[in-house]
């Protein structure tokens, strides 16, 4: 039955139909809260002996890139602070290594403010990837026009919108270190940005969040709260709470669609790997034109 119907189409249309039916796979690799953990943890570390390490992560990423055609590599913030590498080199090494691993984008965590906006800017000159910050308004600071709300990627035949959402800095970061940064409501800004990306025709929308997974105070903005209170986000890649997840959690958003949340602990102990199989079929009107 199926084959006889295809015979009605001419050969050109038939080829086109087959082409769009081909399944493509997007692989999203992600980290969060890497906290200057360049080396593996020492062998006598009580919790994570000989685990993690950037050179190993780089090899793993290379291997995946060899096997997979369409890879996005993202980070959800707190790149800085945690080992003496940061105290001695002030973020230069972290940025250079992330650039060498070909990160596509990152957002800022609260600890990325630890050497002030000037310190971040100095380190950022060694980054060849954008920092996505939709809800920090840096207009009156040295970071003006140094970050962007979102970036659109084209991979696996998909238009992918990625944006960043940061945590409230007041009470968490010394005021001297964030200066005149204006904090915008994270849920509202996330919804506005995701809507914009949707209206620009994005097929898949990712939020890099440093809000934290969830809190006992349900009113506090978190990834779980954002997952339930959004309309257009497919995937939230989180950070801040150093939450180790076995697999993404699935939430029903305001459109009654799934929003997934994932986070991979901290210190580069794990690399998150999300696979999106894109079977996008052209509309009927396209198939017969």
């Amino acid at each position: 039955m199926g084959s006889s119907s295809l015979l009605l189409l001419n050969s050109f249309q038939w080829t086109k139909q087959l082409q769009v039916l081909k399944e493509k796979k997007l692989v999203i690799l992600h980290t969060n809260d890497t906290h200057s953990q360049i080396d593996p943890f020492p062998a006598n570390h009580p919790k994570f002996p000989n685990k993690g390490g950037v050179a190993r992560r780089a090899k793993l990423i290379d291997d995946i890139r060899t096997q997979e055609e369409h890879v996005l590599l993202l980070d959800s913030g707190d790149i800085f602070q945690g080992t003496p590498y940061f105290n001695l080199f002030h973020g230069e090494l972290e940025m250079k290594l992330m650039s060498a691993m070909k990160y596509d984008a990152a957002t800022m965590g609260n600890h990325d403010f630890d050497i002030g906006l000037d310190g971040f800017l100095k380190a950022k000159q060694f980054a060849n990837f954008p920092f996505l910050c939709a809800n920090y308004d840096f207009s009156n600071t040295v970071l003006k026009e140094q970050t962007q709300a979102y970036k659109i990627f084209h991979k696996a035949g998909l238009k992918i919108g990625v944006f960043g959402i940061g945590i409230q800095l007041e009470g968490l970061v010394s005021a001297d270190n964030y200066g005149a940064t204006v904090y915008l409501d994270p849920i509202e800004t996330a919804n506005r940005t995701a809507k914009e990306l949707y209206e620009q025709g994005c097929d898949f929308i990712i939020c890099l969040s440093h809000l934290g997974y969830s809190y006992p105070d349900a009113k506090k903005p978190s990834d779980v709260r954002l997952a339930v209170e959004n309309s257009n986000i497919d995937l939230i890649l989180g950070g801040h709470t150093h939450t180790f997840m076995e697999a993404p959690s699935v939430h029903r958003n305001k459109q009654d669609k799934d929003t997934l949340v994932h986070q991979v602990g901290f210190a580069g102990l794990f690399l998150g790997k999300i696979e999106v199989s894109a079977r996008k079929v052209a509309c009927w009107k396209h198939a017969i034109e």
């Binding site: 593996p40 000989n50 685990k51 993690g52 390490g53 950037v54 050179a55 190993r56 992560r57 780089a58 090899k59 793993l60 290379d62 290594l97 060498a100 691993m101 097929d203 898949f204 497919d234 995937l235 180790f244 997840m245 076995e246 697999a247 993404p248 799934d258 997934l260 994932h262 991979v264 602990g265 580069g268 102990l269 794990f270 690399l271 998150g272 790997k273 999300i274 696979e275 999106v276 199989s277 894109a278 079977r279 996008k280 079929v281 052209a282 509309c283 009927w284 198939a287």
Partner: peptide, 27 residues
């Protein structure tokens, strides 16, 4: 069927440990 895009999503974490090889240029 054709007018909707179909995305299947699955996810996991990959452990980085003593069994992972290093990328020599990075080391």
């Amino acid at each position: 069927v054709a007018c909707s895009s179909h995305l299947n999503i699955s996810g996991a974490k990959v452990s980085i440990n003593v069994d992972s090889n290093e990328k020599q240029e990075i080391s």
